[in-house]
Design a protein around this nucleic acid. Structure first.
Lengths: 248, 248
DNA sequence: CGTACGTTTGATCTTTCTCAATAATGGTGG
DNA sequence: CCACCATTATTGAGAAAGATCAAACGTACG
């Protein structure tokens, strides 16, 4: 990762939506943690288990998933470097989903009790965590819409736009493209499709000149057009500073 | 509603997952509010607008929805009496979705700033709100799975189970059945299907002896079987008292 | 250089959608 | 209480998006 401190990106992601005082910042950066290198597909959280740690993704990608009785898998969110992976479980006893690494990467394990404590004692940090949780909730809602009411082409385009915009907001991608380290199987599970159909849909977008691939790198010649095709409006990402959170 | 105080059910729903002290309870019940009677389909929150109030559903049903560019609609959650409808927007500036009444019913409008304040100053209440938000997030994730990876029959059965279990937990339904005030169009938009197919799927479940209808009342001769068919496990509802929230 | 994993393609099958018509139902005014 | 209207539910027939199955092809890497 570019930045020096493993938690630097995490701090940035918190601050982007909710203001932190100098003290808040120090408190976050002062959190004790252990850095772990993880292989792709290792588990960070397992459905049915009690969350013990509070992980922050330092580098690489991760995703949340749930399984169905008949062996189906649904990916319900993707995560990029700097995002906390356990806010959704921070105050719940048993995890309702699993979190896995999508790529190799590093994770900073924070102490759960310490984070809980910080969120209670430092109002600014608590607010930032809350806002992060709410923004994640909003992304889940959009994911429902994507999977429930859009056709394959729109669905795929939407997902690609979401990742592009989030990476850019986090300073991890430039306008023109990024590496998408997902197999078509994983894309399928994120989109509620089969990998065969994902493959055909990718080909379709390429044929239309909407996206290009070189290895696992994808780029969009015309991001605006891609947004239109993907019915993508970033409002649901709540990327800006939330003023509601400032009132003290 | 059965209980006297309009906020009684709300308090119960908060307390079910997170403990409140006597003072916390008083603070919640002491919230000032205005009671409004609303017709079915009136808006409580509109996508794109800044949330002004903080509504609690006192009686009736409500739902959250988002629209797609091509006019599609996706319902992303249902809400029953006692639930707060604005926690998802409590600290966000502009709403990413709409909330509408499903039936006629009553709503208690709380003052947003007052609720925000309470959540900041009374740790117990803040925890309870946070846990409620997290549990909602979990329900969104399950909704993604339902819509993304289950066939129509399973999907419908799952939704019906969810409503049954939530109503029961809130003390609003007995084991054997409840009134489901949704049209097949609305069910379709909740399930990511068409109303025609919902109709056929309902008929199928009936023919299998899994559900019965009398007017808008539905009942399940064998709830266990229904759960199996709907691939339903209530873990994701996080219905019990969350011990993680107790640590102070 | 061969194995394992991921991608691509073709052929065929299913679920679900679309369109359209008909039947119930519930509520309303007279 | 009845006739009428507007919703909502039901049914049929045909079309389509996406799933399934199976095979061939690439490519990274040990």
């Amino acid at each position: 990762m570019a930045s020096g401190h493993p938690l630097a990106l995490f701090l940035r992601s918190l601050e982007r939506r909710s203001p932190l005082s100098e003290d808040d910042r120090r408190a976050v950066m002062g959190l004790s943690f252990t850095l772990r290198a993880l292989e792709s597909s290792s588990y960070l959280v397992r459905e049915g288990e009690a969350p013990k740690r509070c992980c922050v993704l330092v580098s690489g990608y991760a995703y949340r998933q749930k399984l169905t009785a008949d062996g189906g898998r649904q990916i319900v969110s993707l995560h990029i470097a700097g995002e906390a992976l356990d806010f959704q479980n921070l105050f719940l006893d048993v995890s309702d989903h699993s979190v896995q690494m999508l790529t190799n990467g590093e994770v900073a394990d924070l102490d759960r009790a310490q984070v809980q404590n910080l969120s209670r004692t430092r109002a600014g940090v608590g607010q930032a965590i809350l806002v992060a949780i709410l923004a994640e909730g909003s992304m889940f809602r959009e994911w429902v819409v994507n999977v429930g009411r859009r056709d394959a082409r729109t669905r795929l385009a939407h997902l690609l736009c979401e990742v592009a915009v989030r990476l850019e907001a986090q300073g991890l991608a430039d306008e023109k493209g990024y590496a998408l380290p997902m197999t078509q199987d994983q894309l399928a599970d994120a989109l509620g499709l089969t990998s065969v159909h994902v493959n055909r849909t990718i080909k379709l977008l390429e044929a239309e000149g909407l996206m290009m691939r070189k290895r696992r790198n994808i780029s969009f010649p015309d991001l605006q057009q891609m947004r239109r095709v993907g019915d993508f409006n970033e409002r649901y990402l709540h990327l800006g500073r939330q003023r509601s959170a400032e009132a003290r």
